[in-house]
Design a protein around this nucleic acid. Structure first.
Length: 263
DNA sequence: CGAGATGTTCGGCT
DNA sequence: AAGCCGAACATCTC
């Protein structure tokens, strides 16, 4: 599920815990989401106050008092939720922060998500080094052109999935963007003409913007007429031509496109 | 039972 | 060296 707007939606799920102290921490510290980190910092969250949250691309950052920072990535199946203070953690609840009035829950069935921890006055390097997102002013024609030029042989679809260039864009958003920009997902990134790059930039911004106000706000469906609704089964049709969509695996990911629209 | 699922990361090859 | 590709990760559902 979690791409740009879904991440933003989940980040806000923990808002009710802001300004409140964490009393107890439950975690599966030996599981995959905690790989490669100093899990001793986990217990330090107890006693600290959740101060604020931010999201960038598919990454979330939660700041606690005492210079403690928690990063969460939702992977493929991660989600955040809020439960009652006496909530008994379920099988895939890998991190639960108990407060006096509620429990903040990170659940991730497939465990492709990731927990990061940091202690310090400033935000950690893994946060500050995230590339500018599609809705920021730095995400401009020069930025996109240079990124495409750096991956000349890569299919466009795969290029859009690289978080270094398109933070927050995931599998369904990439298909939606390419459909709107009328670009075939198999095209090599290095062969896209300036005019086409402009379209790619504009549609990337548009899809992100609209997704944020619908999915990002209330988890509403994407607007009617989006490819989104058609790409989940092999009988999907182009919203414009009503002709059958094409399906292929590009860069290991299922890709849907319309051969009439996308050249 | 095998295939596939909205994501990264690593190893190997060019 | 940088870029590209495919496999691997863990679990559930169709």
């Amino acid at each position: 599920m979690p791409e740009l707007a879904e991440v933003e939606y989940f980040r806000k799920q923990w808002d009710s815990g802001i300004g409140k102290k964490v009393t107890r921490v439950h975690s599966h510290a030996d599981k995959r989401p905690f790989r490669g980190i100093d899990v001793s910092l986990l217990e330090q969250i107890a006693g600290k106050k959740l101060v604020e949250s931010r999201s960038a691309g598919k990454q979330m950052l939660f700041r606690f008092s005492g210079g403690l920072w928690l990063g969460l990535h939702l992977g493929m199946t991660g989600k955040l939720g809020v439960e009652a203070a006496d909530y008994p953690p379920a099988k895939h609840d890998h991190l639960v922060l108990f407060q006096s009035g509620r429990a903040l829950v990170f659940n991730d069935m497939r465990q492709f998500g990731r927990v990061l921890l940091h202690k310090g006055k400033e935000a950690p390097e893994w946060w500050t080094s995230i590339s500018p997102g599609p809705l920021s002013p730095e995400f401009n024609l020069e930025h996109v052109s240079q990124f495409l030029a750096r991956h000349p042989k890569l299919p466009l679809k795969s290029t859009l999935l690289l978080q270094k260039g398109f933070p927050g864009v995931g599998n369904w958003m990439a298909d939606e963007i390419l459909w709107r920009a009328k670009l075939n997902p198999h095209r090599k990134a290095g062969a896209i003409k300036p005019r086409e790059i402009s379209a790619l930039l504009a549609e990337t911004r548009y899809v992100c913007e609209v997704a944020m106000t619908t999915i990002g706000n209330k988890f509403e469906d994407a607007p009617e007429g989006w490819l989104f609704h058609q790409r989940w089964n092999r009988k999907g049709k182009c919203p414009k031509h009503k002709s059958p969509l094409q399906f292929d695996t590009i860069g290991g990911r299922t890709t849907a496109w319309c051969e009439k629209c996308q050249k």
